[in-house]
């Protein structure tokens, strides 16, 4: 435990240093892409607990993000809306009006998303595989339809004017936290129980694991960090709208996970970075060759080819570690250690 706190403190200090370095020396665009990568990492790593470790297939991550984003914005942002009864604009002042309120607001957003995670997790326990995927997708759609109809938080307009609280420090502080938590989780009794459920639910039950409880816990955990990521994204873009959290967003996160390898946290991280940075890198290529839209076509093709030729993703269920790198670099005798089974 003491060690864990030690690592946390050291890495937060590193993140603070990196933040200072980025702010003072690096092009804003690159910083923006790095920040977006950080948010994607939080999303992918948290989804990995539900989809990768526990073997449930959730397509509702964007719904959890939306809840986190809107709830945290509720606490930090002045809500202005047109009141039809009074036929004029009404403003609600935010509860936390200083930067100090940011982290509490994010955490409240995360908790709200976690509650939604429990609400989704409990009734959908009976469902498996594809059915669960579609049910969670339906949940995400219902969330966006509800937001669209909720005038106080902007409805279809979205909610503008979120304060620009997100920066590299906060984003990567949460990256460090989610990565560390998930890492320890994988090694804990809880994590082992999740993997047991993934491998064989019946056998796991026989061994005395309460599969239902574990599954709900996985949903709560994943939803909490999705909510945090939503809040961070909202305060980075400074505007949120229901369209940002449509089901394509959920699919994007799943694709990140799948690219890296379901069940591998390092894989999720690599997948998140690649799929966030690559489209940005292709931005210029696209306008130069004058074929707008190629990027999404390429993205889809990569997905299909990956599934056909390497369905386990880049890393399979293995984790990237120095040992693995060490094995990869000299020789290539044990090559392909990345996960070919």
């Amino acid at each position: 435990m003491g060690r864990m706190i030690g690592i946390l403190v050291v890495s937060l200090a590193v993140v603070l240093g990196v933040n200072w370095f980025l702010d003072s020396y690096i092009d804003q665009y690159v910083v923006r892409v790095i920040n977006m990568c950080g948010i994607s990492i939080i999303l992918a790593v948290s989804l990995n607990v539900i989809n990768g470790l526990c073997g449930q297939f959730s397509l509702g991550h964007a719904g959890f993000m939306a809840i986190g984003a809107y709830v945290s914005a509720w606490f930090t942002t002045t809500l202005r809306y047109f009141d039809e009864a009074q036929a004029k604009y009404v403003a609600i002042e935010p509860m936390f009006s200083s930067q100090w309120g940011f982290v509490p607001a994010l955490i409240v957003g995360g908790i709200a998303a976690a509650i939604a995670g429990a609400v989704v997790g409990i009734p959908t326990l009976r469902l498996k595989g594809d059915y669960l995927a579609i049910a969670t997708l339906g949940f995400g759609e219902i969330v966006t339809i509800m937001i669209t109809n909720f005038e106080t938080i902007g409805g279809a307009n979205g909610l503008p004017g979120l304060p620009a609280y997100s920066n590299t420090f906060w984003i990567f502080a949460f990256v460090v936290i989610v990565v560390m938590f998930s890492w320890y989780l994988q090694r804990s009794t809880f994590g082992r129980a999740l993997i047991a459920i993934r491998e064989n639910e019946l056998a796991a039950e026989v061994m005395g694991i309460s599969a239902s409880r574990m599954k709900v816990m996985a949903f709560i955990y994943g939803a909490f960090f999705a909510g945090i990521a939503g809040g961070l994204l909202g305060h980075l873009l400074q505007t949120i709208s229901p369209a940002t959290f449509n089901f394509m967003k959920s699919i994007e996160v799943v694709v990140m996970l799948v690219l890296g390898g379901l069940g591998s946290m390092t894989g999720a991280i690599v997948g998140a970075i690649v799929l966030t940075a690559l489209p940005e890198a292709l931005r210029d290529v696209e306008s130069e060759i004058g074929l707008v839209g190629v990027r999404m076509v390429a993205y889809a093709l990569v997905l299909i080819l990956l599934m056909i030729f390497r369905p386990q993703g880049i890393f399979g269920q293995k984790e990237l570690s120095l040992k693995l790198l060490g094995r990869l670099i000299p020789g290539r005798k044990s090559g392909n250690a990345g996960g070919e089974e």
Binding site: I7, V14, V176, W183, T266, L320, S321
Partner: peptide, 12 residues
């Protein structure tokens, strides 16, 4: 433990 550190280094 070592792997956790590795991870952070990789991230950095």
């Amino acid at each position: 433990m070592r792997t956790a550190l590795t991870l952070l280094i990789a991230l950095g």
